[in-house]
Simulated scan of single mutants.
Amino acid sequence: MPECTLNYFIRSNSSRGYASFFQSNFSRLRTVVRLDGYPSVAVADIVGNICADALEKGFHAQLIHNCLDNSLEGVIIPERSAGVINFPLYDEEEYCIAAILNDDNLNLTFAGLEAARRHFAAALEIHDRWEKIYISNMDFDAANKLAANTIEKVVGGNTLPKQGEQIHRFFGAATIDGSFDYIDGLTSHLAKRYFIKGRPGTGKSTFLRKIADYASAAGFETEVYHCAFDPNSLDMIVLRELSLCVFDSTSPHEYFPSRPSDEIIDIYKAAVVDKTDEKYRTEIAAIMTDYKSEIAKATKQLTRAKKYYDEVQRGILSKISAKALGNAEKKIHNKIFEDG
Rank of each mutant, 00 (worst) to 15 (best):
A121M: 09
A123Y: 07
F207K: 01
R118S: 13
G219T: 04
D213N: 13
S179N: 10
I151S: 04
P200R: 03
G156M: 09
G164H: 11
A123P: 04
S205Y: 10
A212L: 12
K162Y: 13
E131S: 12
E131T: 11
L190R: 07
I167N: 09
Y134R: 10
N144F: 00
Q163G: 02
I167H: 12
I167R: 14
D213F: 05
T175G: 08
V155D: 06
Q163R: 11
K145P: 03
R199P: 05
Y182P: 03
W130S: 10
A191I: 09
A142D: 01
A123T: 00
V155K: 10
L208I: 14
H168E: 14
G198M: 10
S205E: 08
E131Q: 13
F170V: 07
I133R: 11
K210T: 05
G185W: 11
R169A: 09
T175M: 07
I196K: 03
G185F: 11
F140M: 14
D177L: 01
L186V: 02
F195V: 06
R193T: 13
E165I: 11
N149Y: 03
F120L: 07
A173F: 02
A142L: 04
Y214K: 14
R129V: 02
H168R: 15
H168W: 14
A122P: 01
A123G: 08
